[in-house]
Design a protein around this nucleic acid. Structure first.
Length: 487
RNA sequence: GCCCCCAUCGUCUAGAGGCCUAGGACAACACCCUUUCACGGUGUAGACAGCGAUUCGAAUUCGCUUGGGGGUACCA
């Protein structure tokens, strides 16, 4: 069997989108599963929308997700260059071949003429298909047009190719994920393969690149289905081997529209900034359209690769639910080692003066606050009361907890009894236990007792384990805060 | 408008004619655990879009309808 070669070909007109990441993942998985090669190609034909920043973002995001490519702009490979803008000199050759074999022709129509054709079509409620009026221009006519200063675009002759290689106008192909797909090519219209300025168009350039890079399987979003027919015809006209195609359903926002910024993060780097783990993101995105055979949903990419079968991918669109991603993220955070977690949390702790804590205290603080983290960024709010001499008391905490008589009583008693307490967790655990017992006898629930202390010390009604919190803060800060809370 | 694709709980999905009174995960709700929140545990609720056809038998096959998505560029 021939070598499996797949590719991801993002166009750097924005940061790497999660949709592209998923397509990249499925390509990557397919390559892994079949011992093939995964190629990265940058499609920067549209120079105006391209920027180096986006290219870097694509590289970094793909790497962060663990989707390493075997061939690409940075690592090279036998079929380079892997950046489209550096390949411009190879496209005209095949245009010429197409021209010579009659599968393409020069088109001198102006944008205005084309516009008029389209208007005419819509006026008559007819589907627009290019009129082909330049198909049979004589050499004299062409020379005359050229003399007028017109520069021709090159169009691909759909009908000619279709007739040459197929029985009817219906073109069929067997899609790796959707099964047999078909289209009446009479409805396609002769499309431009080379613009009048000499630049190749997308549909043409992809074919040339994929052909030259020996891509065996093209796995991409279903928004490319209609392009596929055009591309197949180009391969055939060129006498090249047609690769296998597989089209994935799209990822939609919860409102079923296209996933866009207004729904939240869309670029991989946005998710990372918000505190998502790339491990969680890639795992989650794999589950959009694919299900593990053993039902184990939490699974690293290499394990997914073992289980992956392209024909088992769902052919329908799927909605990007942030809820499940969050659940998965919290799961991955729980699996992180302390060392790794601390490292990853650091960027979200920049606003604090970490020198207030010893290494030991810092570690303990993370240990007792990591449990409820859904996003890495949640740590910022979770540890706020560990820093500074005083704390901000939430208004509700003030009125509902601290202002009560019971709380005041508890706090005064705490100051009194805790005078000679040693602030180690072990000791505090014991002392607090008897302290709760002291109030329990007076008819005050342990819960209420603890709430008063928590409210005074942290300003909140919820938070990390109280014993640990007090120990980390130390006697000095605790007493200061309790005194401040007493009226 | 025309063409193409898709259709199982709110969401992601399992399901290839009898194993389906449709299974799992997230979310929701309830209870348990607990010095709080959370974690965890145990439960509850929740779907085959509709209509026809094929068949002894259909979520699974076929047709139509409806709904959703995509395409229709000298954008990629």
């Amino acid at each position: 069997m021939e070598e499996v070669r797949v590719r991801i070909a993002p166009s750097p007109s924005g940061n790497l989108h999660v949709g592209t990441a998923r397509t990249a993942l499925f390509n990557f998985l397919f390559a892994k599963k079949n011992n093939g090669k995964f190629v990265l190609r940058i499609e920067d034909t549209d120079a105006e929308r391209t920027s180096q920043e986006y290219i870097d973002n694509i590289f970094d995001s793909l790497k962060a997700l663990g989707l390493n490519w075997d061939e690409g702009p940075d690592v090279g490979g036998p079929f380079g260059p892997y950046t489209q803008s550096e390949r411009f000199d190879i496209y005209p050759k095949y245009v010429q071949q197409l021209l010579d074999s009659g599968f393409a022709y020069e088109c001198f129509c102006t944008p205005e003429e084309l516009e008029a054709e389209k208007e005419e079509a819509t006026r008559n409620k007819k589907p627009y298909v290019y009129s082909k009026k330049c198909e049979n221009l004589t050499e004299e006519e062409k020379a005359k047009l050229r003399a007028e200063g017109r520069k021709p675009a090159i169009r691909f002759n759909i009908a000619k190719a279709q007739k040459a290689f197929h029985d009817s106008s219906i073109l069929k192909f067997d899609d790796l994920v959707k099964g047999e797909l078909h289209m009446d090519t009479d409805l396609l219209g002769d499309f431009v393969i080379q613009k009048s300025n000499g630049a190749p168009t997308y549909n043409y350039a992809v074919v040339i690149d994929d052909m030259l890079m020996k891509i065996s399987h093209v796995i991409r979003g279903e928004d490319h289905i209609s392009n596929t027919y055009k591309q197949i015809l180009i391969y055939e006209a060129l006498g090249a081997e047609v690769p296998k195609f597989g089209h994935l359903g799209m990822i939609l926002a919860p409102d079923r529209s296209k996933l866009s910024k207004r729904h939240g993060a869309t670029a991989v780097s946005d998710f990372v900034k918000e505190g998502y783990l790339t491990e969680a993101l890639i795992n989650f995105v794999a589950l959009l359209g694919w299900a593990p055979s053993d039902g184990e949903e939490i699974k690293p990419v290499d394990k997914i690769a073992e289980d992956f079968r392209i024909n088992e991918i769902s052919s329908s669109n799927s909605i990007f639910e942030y809820d499940k991603l969050k659940w998965m993220n919290s799961h991955y955070i729980k699996m992180l080692s302390m060392e790794e977690l601390k490292k990853r949390l650091l960027p979200y702790l920049e606003k604090y003066n970490l020198s207030e804590l010893t290494d030991e205290q810092f570690t303990r603080m993370i240990e007792v606050t990591r449990e409820p983290l859904i996003l890495l960024s949640d740590i910022t709010d979770a540890v706020t009361y560990f820093f500074g001499e005083t704390v901000d008391i939430e208004p509700e905490v003030q009125t509902e907890v601290l202002d009560t008589e019971t709380s005041q009583e508890v706090l005064k008693e705490y100051l009194e009894q805790s005078k000679d307490w040693e602030y180690t967790e072990e000791n505090l655990h014991e002392k607090l236990d008897t302290f709760r017992g002291f109030f329990k006898e007076k008819g005050i629930k342990p819960k209420v007792t603890m709430w008063a202390i928590r409210a005074a010390v942290t300003g909140k009604t919820r938070g990390a384990d109280m014993t640990a919190t007090l120990a980390i803060l130390g006697k000095d800060k605790v007493e200061k805060r309790i005194k401040a809370a007493i009226k």
